[in-house]
Nucleic acid binder design. Structure first.
Length: 290
DNA sequence: TGAATTTGACCTGC
DNA sequence: GCAGGTCAAATTCA
């Protein structure tokens, strides 16, 4: 890897790989591959694209940061994030600590699934944009020490960097208004699988997807069949095509990108997502990652 | 009227 | 002493 653009391309390709894997998960909800949760895959997709945005915005992240959480994603032995003290004291190199996690988004109102209360705003000397300080809204009620900083780092296109500190101990389901529920801490998710629950009255689903999602997925698959029929006029070919796509990665097994191999090798050409409209539909799930 | 945000002051690390 | 992080009173909003 020599140039930042190549890094960006790698990030995009890896994001695409994760998106494909997520799609396979949705096509095969009963597959045995549960080494990585669907939420982690969705988060990886967002993170990869955020990394690419950062690079293209001339605000490169460290090479370690680009895929660091992806490499840890498959490891269930990662230690939990230590909780930050509530002291007013600034910790040495706090903002660069590996305990922190940052996310770049073109949307300043990026919804991460938690409720935050703004407690401060500062002009940062080396930046022309002010930095906003937030803490978890349940900071007092549940002694939750999670905090985040948000700062505009690029004007055109606008890019906002949100840096998270500490982790949530409130365990409050705050996503109900968004139509789904997350359990736990997004940051913890980098190391641990996470449950995603759509709707308020649904029981937990050990596959990580609820019945309603499966139902939607069925609709989408059916629509895909219809679209394919519209193009080929052949229902049988449609089924064969979809079946072949599934067989190309029968176990849904996932191979993280290696530094030595070509990223392009990771992709099965027949698995490329050609129907962008279909993926726009998947965006309806949102996952609370925007 | 209570909750959320703003903003100047204060505190601490470097 | 400076810069960044937090506090808390004042202000705004629903």
């Amino acid at each position: 890897m020599n140039t930042s653009q190549e890094k960006a391309v790698q990030a995009i390709l890896h994001g695409h790989s994760c998106a494909k894997r997520l799609k396979l998960r949705l096509d095969h909800p009963m597959a045995n591959d549960r080494s990585v949760s669907n939420y982690d895959l969705a988060k990886s997709i967002v993170h990869c694209f955020s990394s690419a945005i950062s690079i293209f915005s001339d605000t490169p992240k460290s090479e370690d940061g680009l895929f660091s959480h992806l490499s840890s994603m498959d490891s269930s032995s990662s230690p939990p994030l230590p909780q930050r003290s509530h002291s007013k004291k600034r910790k040495n190199n706090d903002t660069n600590s590996s305990e922190n996690w940052s996310h770049d988004s073109p949307d300043p109102n990026y919804y991460d699934g938690f409720l935050w209360r703004k407690y401060g705003q500062k002009t940062i000397k080396k930046s022309k944009h002010q930095r906003s300080y937030y803490r978890c809204s349940y900071n007092i009620d549940h002694a939750c020490g999670a905090r985040k900083h948000e700062q505009k780092i690029k004007d055109n296109p606008p890019v906002y960097r949100t840096t998270y500190f500490g982790h949530h101990t409130c365990n409050i389901n705050q996503n109900q208004d968004a139509g789904f529920t997350t359990v736990g801490d997004p940051i913890d998710n980098l190391e641990n699988s996470r449950m995603i629950r759509f709707g308020q009255d649904l029981d937990q689903d050990t596959s990580g997807l609820s019945v309603s999602v499966k139902h939607e997925e069925g609709i989408i698959r059916e629509e895909t069949m219809d679209q394919y029929r519209g193009i080929t006029g052949n229902d049988k070919d449609c089924q064969i095509e979809i079946k072949e796509n599934h067989q190309s990665s029968p176990s849904g097994s996932y191979t993280p990108p290696s530094s030595s191999g070509s990223e392009i090798d990771m992709f099965d050409s027949d698995l490329l997502v050609e129907d962008l409209d279909l993926w726009d539909r998947y965006d309806l799930y949102d996952f609370g990652l925007r």
